[in-house]
Design a protein around this nucleic acid. Structure first.
Lengths: 243, 243
DNA sequence: ATACAATTAAATGTCTGACAAATGAAAATT
DNA sequence: AATTTTCATTTGTCAGACATTTAATTGTAT
């Protein structure tokens, strides 16, 4: 692990990069303790604050964790699915909000991914996830539910569908796509009529999963996508008309 | 934006969190300049090194960029798709390698996602991406190609398939799934026979996309998944027998 | 000898103050 | 007017110090 003091990049960035590569390549296994900050500052021939900045960069990516005290130090962190979810969600959220990704594009991506999960969910159809889906459908049909709560329940329903595939890698990938869309979804005002429509489609999806009918789930998901995009377009059109 | 000096968390982590939330919520728009480090240290009532550690945490997530000089400072960064790709790929790679995700699980996720893209690619079937797919197939059939090069070409083929969907959000999501598997794929030794098989399947996929036949693409992708898993299992079995 | 308390050492967390280097704007000069 | 010089601002880096946390060590009393 060497660094170049004459590079254009910050020393702390170079050091973080060097350690990161060591972790990715497996030279530094999980739970391995890094040298202390003083030792690192000697090894890289930089000051301790510089080393610390490098370590904070790594901590921000959940690559290491630090512990104070006598036996403390910086340890290579096992990247958990939870940590990865969180990163995935904030990255996706920012990507959508900062790059003017159209509702339609985001929606297309999300439903394409969900359709990919549906056959697996239908094949495995665990009681657990089916029960969650039914419970969320029931919640969605409660009168007096706020739009935000309806949206949150919608997310929960779709997460159950995705988790039902029983593949943590898929769940992780999709967490971002589904949750990142929540801000856009919250724009939509759900009328009694549109809720009814959505609940009917959710029921069809749950039925299809339960009955191991992936093609029916696919159709229902496609219709739900079309309907959601239409609702969003109505909102946008209404806003344009008002101004 | 307030922080709690008596919290269990690091001050720099709290400050980073506060600024991060301001960015996500849109209070700090893209290209907005943050106050200088000295000003921030006054606002949060901490020292400059602490502020700097917070800023480095944000820089590590591509949330800000910094510039030296008179009109320099820290600016809210527009998260580009490229940055997001890179983060997605390292996160996915680490997730797979650190959590003992089986080849089969990773492969299932990857091909489920690719099958989700295939219908969109078939529908749009741009000459550009089709040409790339054909070119990669041609490269794969070159004799004397190393296993690594074959793998790399395989990744390029699948990326073209995914990009062909014409949905940048999907491309971003899938970059991780496809590229993160490359280390596992590199374990596999591709014999002349297996290469022939894979190339035949790739050709069927390209043909299906070109002919706007999503169901055929789906079938070919499923077969490719089965075959890839089988190849990997053979390698694992051979290793077990040797030891 | 064992249980408990005090001490100590090691590590991260934070602060102060300083200087270096980059960079754009303003001032001075030709 | 164009060019050069100076200058102020800001980030990057360093050195050294103290605070805080934590576990191991030592000491002490039962």
């Amino acid at each position: 692990m060497k660094i170049d003091p004459n590079s254009s990049k910050d020393l702390s960035a170079q050091i973080a990069q060097a350690i990161k590569e060591a972790i990715i390549s497996g030279q530094l296994p999980v739970d391995e303790r890094l040298p202390s900050e003083s030792e690192l500052s000697e090894q890289f021939d930089v000051s301790r604050p510089t080393v610390r900045e490098a370590l904070k960069r790594l901590a921000a990516q959940s690559l290491i964790r630090t512990q104070r005290g006598a036996t403390g130090g910086a340890f290579v962190n096992r990247l958990s699915f939870e940590d990865a979810y969180a990163q995935q969600i904030t990255t996706s959220t920012l990507l959508l909000s900062m790059n003017a990704v159209s509702f339609e594009t985001a929606c297309e991506a999300r439903y394409a991914l969900e359709r990919a999960c549906a056959p697996l969910s239908a094949h495995r159809r665990e009681a657990d996830h089916l029960a969650t889906m039914r419970a969320e459908i029931h919640r969605q049909s409660q009168p007096g539910l706020s739009d935000e709560a309806f949206c949150a329940s919608d997310v929960a329903f779709h997460r159950a569908l995705v988790d039902g595939a029983g593949n943590p890698v898929l769940s992780y990938q999709l967490a971002g796509a589904v949750e990142a869309m929540q801000p856009s979804m919250n724009m939509i005002t759900f009328t009694a009529r549109s809720r009814e429509e959505i609940i009917a489609l959710h029921t069809r999806i749950a039925d299809a999963i339960e009955g191991n009918a992936p093609d029916k789930a696919d159709t229902a998901l496609s219709e739900l996508q079309t309907y959601t995009v239409q609702l969003a377009n109505d909102v946008i059109a209404a806003r344009a008309a008002r101004s």
